[in-house]
């Protein structure tokens, strides 16, 4: 990967959606970097999977992109802006274009499914509309369409805490898509789910993002799932990128390099 590719701010849609990460460092405690000089360019299409052992900074990397975590230094260029330097309103406007799916779904448990999906529009709406739940009819119609798309329209008026894990994650995906994002981030979207549901959720993310032609960055534990759905795999270990290539290129030696040891591969 050529990390130093020039930014084309007025390029075609694909070019604008390209994400450049340059020399990204993150230290939660001084002197103990979790990310050490990560540089990546992620094209504006396809599904990129980040694999690696726990605590290696995968989650931190994904959270730096939408600034749920503030990077210590480095640049994150997206749509012609350095996300790492944004504050206040500018940051909120940038976040509107980046959807995120969480490991533990992060739904508002006491709200209904439809309200949770409509939360995806909060960045575009004044507070009073949220307060009185007076969402624009177009948004409500779109929320229902998305619930159709994730197969949950029959549950629209149920409270989120009445759903199963897989159903909750579907709501999480609908909420992220509700933002009409230019980039979809998924932080361990299947780690709290059973194997069958995990496949369904990955399928759903890949298909719905594919339909809309949104680039997806998924950070995932399950190497098989990553290989099955990703167009590109990034292997991380010890806070740096140690593998970067198509799924076919990922071999045992790489996995040993990423996860260490080899007994587990048998």
């Amino acid at each position: 990967m050529d990390a130093s590719a020039p930014i084309k701010s007025s390029a075609a849609e694909d070019g604008a959606r390209t994400l450049h990460i340059r020399h990204l460092f993150k230290e939660y405690r001084a002197g103990q970097p979790v990310l050490r000089d990560v540089s990546l360019t992620i094209e504006g299409r396809g599904l990129t999977a980040i694999i690696g052992p726990s605590g290696t900074g995968k989650s931190t990397l994904v959270r730096c992109i939408n600034r749920l975590v503030d990077p210590t230094s480095g640049e994150i260029i997206f749509r012609g802006q350095n996300l790492a330097g944004l504050r206040g309103r500018e940051l909120r406007h940038a976040r509107r274009r980046i959807g995120m799916v969480f490991q533990e779904y992060n739904l508002v448990e006491r709200l209904t499914v439809i309200e949770n999906v409509l939360c995806g529009r909060l960045g575009y709406l004044p507070v009073w509309r949220a307060w009185l739940r007076r969402f624009p009819p177009a948004d409500i119609a779109r929320a229902f369409d998305l619930l159709d798309a994730v197969g949950l329209s029959a549950h629209a008026t149920q409270r989120a805490d009445q759903l199963s894990g897989g159903q909750r994650q579907r709501v999480g995906i609908a909420r992220a898509l509700m933002q009409e994002p230019d980039l979809l981030l998924a932080d361990e979207p299947t780690s709290s789910l059973d194997p069958k549901t995990s496949v369904e959720i990955m399928e759903l993310i890949a298909r719905r993002a594919g339909e809309r032609d949104i680039p997806v960055i998924v950070n995932i534990h399950n190497v098989d799932l990553a290989k099955r759905y990703a167009d590109r795999i990034i292997g991380m270990a010890r806070g740096t990128v140690v593998f970067d290539g198509p799924p076919q290129a990922l071999e045992h030696s790489h996995l040993i390099d990423i996860y260490g040891g080899e007994g587990w591969l048998e």
């Binding site: 439809i114 739940r133 009819p137 929320a143």
Partner: peptide
């Protein structure tokens, strides 16, 4: 055929 509506 109209858009679906929803009230809290």
């Amino acid at each position: 055929d109209g858009p679906r509506r929803w009230h809290r």
